[in-house]
């Protein structure tokens, strides 16, 4: 049973329910915390993008707000030098493996990466971290959309909707570490997989990896 509690985020007192995760409480109260992989309906957060760090009074190190349940009297800061440093590094790392051609990207101006950069005043091109040059194949076999892995941030959102909402079971991860990609079973084209072309995954994608053709 959830009960009403009060927490403080960046000096703002907020009344909310227990059992909620901090990230959603903040977002619902117009306090922005960068995030890519978070899914409200998921009980066990993926916690892979490492962008939603906050500092909580009493805890030594910053924590990811998507995994942090709120508790009575919790005092949260979304901007501290340590949080900003972690978010900056994480963001720069993600961008170092992201093909940056915003003007040619269908998600231009609707991209979560651009939003994070705007909100946190971060540069899309890092001065200190080298850009990784890699080549990927674009899969444009579906009628209305395409998958470009060179823009993918591996947030798992498309995999989640594919399995839990569309229940198609067509998308998944392949390979380990830096070689990890989103792909279909046996690495076949989307149209040759279990894909139903429901496009839910395209809507879930926070960046321009899965995009509508027109």
């Amino acid at each position: 049973m959830s009960e009403k509690i009060t927490i403080t985020i960046d000096g703002k007192e907020i009344t909310t329910d227990t059992e909620k995760k901090l990230l959603w409480v903040a977002l619902d109260n117009d306090i922005y915390i960068p995030n890519l992989c978070a899914i409200r309906e998921e009980e066990r957060p993926y916690a892979g993008c490492r962008l939603c760090f906050v500092e909580i009074e009493g805890l030594e190190e910053p924590v990811t707000s998507c995994t942090q349940p709120v508790t009575e009297g919790m005092v949260v800061k979304t901007r501290t030098p340590q949080v900003d440093r972690l978010v900056k590094t994480s963001f720069e790392l993600l961008l170092s493996d992201h093909r940056l051609q915003c003007n040619k990207c269908p998600k231009n101006k609707a991209c979560e990466l651009q939003k994070i950069a705007r909100e946190r005043k971060l540069k899309l091109k890092s001065k200190r971290i080298k850009h990784l040059e890699r080549t990927f194949q674009i899969d444009d076999s579906p009628e209305s959309f395409a998958l470009d892995p060179s823009r993918c941030v591996l947030c798992n959102r498309c995999v989640w909707v594919d399995r839990n909402v569309a229940k198609a079971g067509c998308l998944g991860f392949s390979y380990r570490g830096i070689n990890r990609i989103i792909t279909t079973f046996n690495n076949v084209e989307l149209t040759k997989s279990a894909c139903t072309q429901c496009t839910l995954c395209v809507e879930a994608c926070p960046v321009g990896a899965l995009y509508f053709k027109e």
Binding site: G48, C49, S90, L93, L94, R176, G177
Partner: peptide
């Protein structure tokens, strides 16, 4: 051996 799930390990160790 990094699984590739989280940003720091996947890309950080590479850099």
């Amino acid at each position: 051996e990094s699984c590739g799930k989280c940003t720091f390990c996947r890309l950080g160790t590479k850099h």
